[in-house]
Design a protein around this nucleic acid. Structure first.
Length: 958
RNA sequence: GCCCACUUGGCGGAAUAGGUAGACGCAAGGGACUUAAAAUCCCUCGGCGAGGAAUCGCCAUUCCGGUUCGAGUCCGGAAGUGGGCACCA
């Protein structure tokens, strides 16, 4: 397990990494499955989809988690750090279609490949807890949960719009709709209304929102995004009575209208006197009722439903492209507000003599509020746009503070700001907030309205018309309706032999699987052929890791002691859906008795940045190129440089990128997230092979803070590799030094051999070397005492940095310690002892980051333990304490000197020393001292009367 | 349109709580070692100016303004970049 032994040896990762990975795995394996015994940490990274290959995003994600897991392990925590596979999903079906391979076979092959790849990173994972969501032992519990949800009314069916590919006879996911066409068939996608399963996440909207304010370890950004997504708004329901007289309600439609009121939702009941029309959504029951006898309205509704579909696709397809043009295009659509007059008239709740026309408008959404609004053009931009296009009255009722009532008018922009009520009878003069209260009260008195909180969050549609997912455990019976499968029958597994030859959902075509006796009456019935959205699996997998082999329960009471996840790490792209669904599931499962007292699934959340790289395209064809297919000709002749003289520092490196093979010109694009389609990817396997896992890990963690985007660079990876070699050399020097010390003791013969491996170091030169180099060297050298201090400071800083996931800083502190060890060159027993102590600490600190090389060095010291089982180095505050402090001396706020003073020295002493500095005296220039600001250990700021420079003009009088 | 975040050398980034701006690294340049290369080691490295040098002065954290003895950090405004939501009443 060792690399070659002489002093010039270089560290060879190939020789050691595999063996250590094996060894660690065995050690962890021996611990088996167990609940936590004392202090615990559950470290979890978002589990991967088994696409077949890990990418740099995975490397970053899993390295971040691994450092924490190893760190807390060394701190004496019981650490849970599991890995599994988000194994259901569309790509497996695509592979089945394209390569005639069964989705299960494809998925399992990918899992095997990726497991090997992850293991080559040296991750300290609990592989004995590995789970795959496509395994029946996993989704059995999911089906059980669904039955619980069904019993508690948390799962229900309703009609919903889906993307329908008429040529494939199949439902498409949003991602499969490209420019309004099926991605495979190219057929224009239609919208269809299908019965679908929904989960009642909206029941939990208030809890999901409120708890966010008690989650200090989540990024503000994510909490804000979730708040906006949940979208709570307080307002008021208002009933408008429908006028029932011959003129406005013609006989042929009156039977259709059973209701006598239209209920609308508004956050601005204060503006009720500014209402000049009402509008309902095309999908409002009233619209649909009216459409039965009105062909024009019917075709408008159909058109509107098609339009929303195309609108959605348009947004999606443009998302990654030109954002500005998207905005532009969208804006035009928004300004174009169509609608159809129903000829119905509504009575104003505060004055029945006022009537309002009722329109059907496609800008009113059925899914929000009541699907109906009152339009107040003066104070809502959308209503104003609509009013202008349809010649409706605009009546201002809120007067801005700085406006005059006589001259105030609304033209093209609605006034949505603060102000006082006008034209509003009993509300006149009130501020908006007071007017809202007053108007709501009045509505309540008249039984025409009440306070109401509305949410933007919608229930979660979980039906997918696909094969490779978890089957929904219900049966459709023509006599009994929808009947849950008996629990003893779970899991309902997917049929093995399926065909992807014909379009549509394979489960739909599978007669044998589909037909089953009704659990209630025994008659012939049919299974639900839908499967769950794959977000369902990922909504509870973190629970299962605690107790992955439990067949009876999702997670036993005992194993629940692992929860919550203490630190969850993943990409920001899951800020809303996955994280919100998981929070919802935790609550729903608790209500169904699966969980004891878990409130939130993820105590701490960390969202890592993306791994980016420049893109390259062939200048002629525009085709994307892989980074290793191109190179840069740095065209810089030495002579040329000399000619340019001083300018050369500013000269930008002449960039000429060409295709390696052909020499064709290449355009280098800006750095973007690594993605297959742009080919700006670097394969982690290649990097690990060439440089080793430690180097890859170190590079991922150095320099860039984990939450920010990371720019992949060859130079960066080289830098990390150099540090590995430096560490190795230091270890070899320590070994040599210790060996000599040993020999000295045994033989008492003075060892003449130099400890230095690099004779070019000034220390190792003879006195005839230049004075300058010697002087410079002295300044860099530190004493053993200083090294001891530096070591403890490094322990303190690194520990704090890791706890806060500031790994880039942690690495900086460790590099600093490495530099300090090298700067302590004194040859004495004390120095040797300190160097050994410092290097030992450095190994322990570095181990979570670069586990292989540190473990190897540890073993070469003939230690009997594993470094990965060792404790974190102990920090001693008194040892880290600096006795001398450098304080800044300012004159009138400008730095003039720094002075060395004992720690915590008194004001008098500091002032005295500060004033004795030449530079300070020069700056004072004899002016009278007004005041001296003294902050212990920080600063002395001497404020002095400004003596005017002779040629400086006197203060001007005006 | 609404909401949020960010902006520090050639580059990635440091800078507890307002107290020496640029830690640590990358790139670049100079030098040592070497027959040479690689590797390694040493030095320089925000800008402008003065000086033989040690040093010293001025400017500098996107821009403008404020609070303060003192602002990268706090407050107000502007610009730019990135992200989220988007006809949500």
């Amino acid at each position: 397990m060792t690399a070659r032994g002489d002093n010039t040896t270089r560290y060879d990762h190939r020789a050691v990494e595999k063996a250590w990975q094996q060894r660690w795995r065995e050690t962890r394996q021996r611990r088996g499955l167990h609940p936590p015994s004392g202090r615990k940490k559950y470290i979890l990274e978002m589990f991967p989809y088994p696409s077949g290959n890990i990418h740099m995003g995975h490397v970053r994600n899993y390295t971040l988690g691994d450092v924490l897991a190893r760190f807390y392990r060394a701190q004496g925590f019981d650490v849970l750090h599991p890995m599994g596979w988000d194994a259901f999903g569309l790509p497996a079906e695509n592979a089945a279609f394209e390569h005639k391979q069964h989705p299960r076979a494809w998925t399992h092959a990918n899992i095997d490949a990726m497991r090997t790849q992850l293991q080559s990173m040296g991750l300290a994972l609990d592989w004995q807890r590995e789970i795959a969501t496509c395994h029946p032992s996993y989704y059995k519990h999911e089906q059980g949960m669904f039955l619980d949800f069904l019993e508690r009314g948390l799962a229900y069916r309703k009609e919903a719009w889906v993307n329908w590919d008429p040529s494939e006879n199949s439902v498409l996911a949003d991602e499969q709709v490209i420019d309004g066409k099926g991605w495979r068939s190219g057929a224009i996608v239609e919208k269809r209304k299908l019965e679908q399963w929904f989960l009642k996440i909206t029941d939990y909207a208030p809890q999901l929102l409120e708890e966010l304010s008690r989650m200090p370890q989540w990024p503000e950004k994510v909490k804000t995004m979730q708040r906006n997504w949940i979208g709570r708004s307080e307002g008021c329901l208002v009933d408008f009575r429908i006028q029932k007289n011959e003129e406005t309600l013609p006989a042929e439609i009156s039977p259709e209208i059973s209701m006598d009121r239209l209920r609308v939702f508004s956050t601005r009941p204060d503006t009720l006197f500014g209402a000049t029309f009402c509008a309902i959504s095309p999908n409002h029951p009233l619209s649909e009722a009216l459409a039965k006898s009105r062909p024009a309205l019917k075709s408008y509704i159909e058109q509107a439903n098609r339009k929303t579909q195309q609108q959605g696709d348009f947004d999606k397809s443009n998302k990654k492209g030109n954002k500005k043009s998207n905005k532009q295009g969208n804006k035009e659509d928004k300004e174009d507000k169509s609608g159809i007059d129903t000829s119905l008239r509504l009575l104003h709740p505060f004055d029945e003599n006022l009537t309002l026309p009722l329109f059907v408008c496609d800008y009113v959404l059925m899914e929000y509020g009541t699907g109906a609004i009152f339009g107040c053009p003066a104070h809502d931009q959308r209503d104003l746009d609509f009013a202008r296009q349809h010649g409706l009255t605009v009546k201002p009722v809120v007067l801005p503070e700085d406006a005059e009532e006589d001259s105030f008018a609304i033209t093209e922009t609605a006034w949505t700001g603060e102000g006082r009520m006008i034209n509003s009878r009993f509300l006149d003069g009130l501020k908006i907030a007071d007017a809202i209260v007053r108007a709501t009260e009045r509505l309540q008195e008249k039984s025409l309205g009440r306070k109401k909180t509305t949410w933007r969050l919608r229930d979660w549609g979980i039906s997918r018309q696909r094969y490779w997912g978890c089957p929904i455990p219900v049966v459709h019976c023509s006599h009994c309706g929808i009947v849950p499968v008996a629990r003893a029958e779970l899991p309902i597994t997917l049929p093995e032999e399926v065909s992807f030859d014909q379009p549509g959902n394979p489960l739909e075509h599978h007669e044998a699987w589909r037909s089953t006796p009704c659990p209630a009456c025994g008659a012939n019935a049919e299974r639900d052929t839908n499967t769950f959205d794959t977000f369902v699996e990922s909504s509870w997998y973190f629970l299962r890791f605690c107790d992955p082999r439990n067949d009876d329960r999702v997670v036993s009471d005992e194993a629940q002691e692992w929860l919550p996840v203490d630190q969850y790490i993943g990409g920001i792209e899951h800020a809303i859906l996955h994280l919100l669904y998981a929070r919802f599931f935790t609550r729903a499962l608790k209500d169904c008795g699966h969980l004891k007292n878990l409130v939130e699934p993820f105590g701490g959340l960390f969202t890592q940045g993306m791994v980016c790289h420049a893109t390259f395209r062939d200048e002629a064809t525009g085709a994307y190129l892989f980074p290793d297919a191109v190179w840069q000709n740095k065209d810089k002749g030495k002579d040329k440089d000399k000619d340019k003289g001083k300018d050369k520092g500013n000269e930008k490196t002449h960039e000429a990128w060409t295709v390696k093979k052909t020499g064709a010109k290449v355009v280098r694009g800006r750095s973007e997230k690594m993605s297959k389609s742009k080919k700006n990817i670097v394969d982690p396997q290649q990097v690990i092979l060439q440089y080793g896992a430690d180097t890859a890990r170190l590079f991922m963690l150095s320099d860039s803070p984990p939450e920010r985007d990371l720019e992949w660079s060859f130079a960066g990876i080289e830098g990390a590799a150099r540090f590995m070699q430096k560490l190795w050399r230091m270890a070899e020097n320590r070994r040599a030094e210790n060996k000599r010390a040993e020999d000295k003791k045994n033989a008492s013969i003075p060892a003449k051999e130099s400890t230095r491996t690099h004779p070019s170091h000034p220390e190792d030169r003879r006195p005839e070397d230049t004075k300058e180099t010697q002087a410079l060297f002295v300044a860099k050298r530190i004493t053993p005492q200083a090294l001891c201090r530096a070591t403890h400071q490094a322990i303190r800083e690194t520990t704090a940095d890791i706890e806060q996931l500031r790994f880039n800083r942690a690495i900086a502190h460790m590099r600093k310690l490495a530099n300090a060890i090298e700067a302590c060159r004194e040859e004495s027993d004390l120095a040797e002892k300190q160097r050994t102590f410092a290097f030992d600490a450095l190994l322990r600190l570095l181990h979570p980051f670069v586990p292989h090389i540190t473990e190897e060095i540890w073993q070469r010291r003939e230690e009997t333990t594993l470094l990965s089982e060792e404790r974190w180095p102990a920090f001693d505050a008194t040892q880290a304490h600096e006795e001398e402090i450098t304080m800044a001396v300012q004159v009138n706020g400008k730095l003039r000197a720094t002075v060395c003073l004992p720690d915590n020295c008194a004001r008098e002493q500091a002032e005295q020393v500060a004033l004795s500095e030449d530079n300070v005296q020069r700056a004072l220039a004899g002016g009278a001292i007004r005041q001296i600001v003294f902050v212990p250990n920080k600063i002395v700021n001497i404020l002095v009367e400004k003596t005017r420079e002779p040629d400086e003009p006197a203060q001007r009088s005006t």
